[in-house]
Design a binder for these strands. Sequence first.
DNA 1: CTCCGACTACACTGGTCTGTGAAGTCCGAC
DNA 2: GTCGGACTTCACAGACCAGTGTAGTCGGAG
Lengths: 189, 189
Amino acid sequence: MTTLTPGARRILDVASELFYAHGIHAVGVDTIAAESGVTKRTLYDRFGSKDELVAAYLRARDERWRARVTAAVEAADDPIGRVLAPFAVLEEWTAESDRGCAFVNAFAELDDPAHPGRAVIADEKHWLEELFAAELARAGIDDADLALHLLLLHEGALVTYAVAERPAALRIAREGALRACEQKSVPEH
Amino acid sequence: MTTLTPGARRILDVASELFYAHGIHAVGVDTIAAESGVTKRTLYDRFGSKDELVAAYLRARDERWRARVTAAVEAADDPIGRVLAPFAVLEEWTAESDRGCAFVNAFAELDDPAHPGRAVIADEKHWLEELFAAELARAGIDDADLALHLLLLHEGALVTYAVAERPAALRIAREGALRACEQKSVPEH
DNA sequence: CTCCGACTACACTGGTCTGTGAAGTCCGAC
DNA sequence: GTCGGACTTCACAGACCAGTGTAGTCGGAG
């Protein structure tokens, strides 16, 4: 990734925290600049516009999250453990936060499909579906729909956990994902 | 429901459309008043504050959606059809809109748990889970976790459809829900 | 010694935000 | 015929919005 100047790094860190905690439209650039110990001039010199800062926020978050998921996949012992690793990450991650999925939340605020952040959001979901597909193939499970089914359980768990305040959603999703994999790996008829 | 004055009715209709299409923070009360052919004075006389208008928007939307789901449940022929009716509504509904779930979107923007809209949001999800539970019981399926599992598939399909732009998510969710019900209604071991 | 890039300081534009105050019109019910 | 509720008009407050212009500081690399 492109190396950031110290000021830009701080701006991005502060923006990430505030955008996630309060929403994108609810946080002004003045606040971000002040909180970063930087002038607004610097913010605009580094990022060009608020929209681009938002896109940079989403890219940075996506990068961190992919690294975490990838590490969990690699750390798993068996092929099924690898497939289900994102669900384990989800359970760790929800313990730290109750504001839901940053990408879903950003989608809610970015109504213009041409906004530079929208591509990052869609990519994040597609990457996870492809990761499921790749790990299912590796586990010898061949089902064209299963990767999407797992994505759906994952996203459903995240939104249900946060929005409906149902912590049990995480367990149900993991168990459901495991059952779906077992069903496909050992067909009975 | 409380009867609204003609002005209030128009304000609520306009607010519903604009809040859903562009987000809550992105739409100002001036715009809503102007678009409703009403003065801002009237808006504040009827709703008291923007936060209360937001809550009224969510309540109205919740009411319409429950009516639609309830009608679909009642129209279904068999017990399993009743359980899966919300998935049929989802497929109809997504054909009309690509901005995702209004309640999830509102959650993204309402960071204060004490906001009057937050209770409406959580209730909407709980109501659906309870509907699933009631219809599962009626179908003679006894599984403590299945209602939540179905909620999860439902929410996952909605977010995946909109955010990831994966229309197939709707079919996968319906099929997954059906399979989960069959598995529980006819246990093999 | 000079140039460049990171950054500061700060005023300023033009617009939008939620919310209020005061005065007045119109209409139907009692 | 008067009273109340729905609604209008419009000015106003005070904060906040994204974004720019100008001028200048500082340190390191060539």
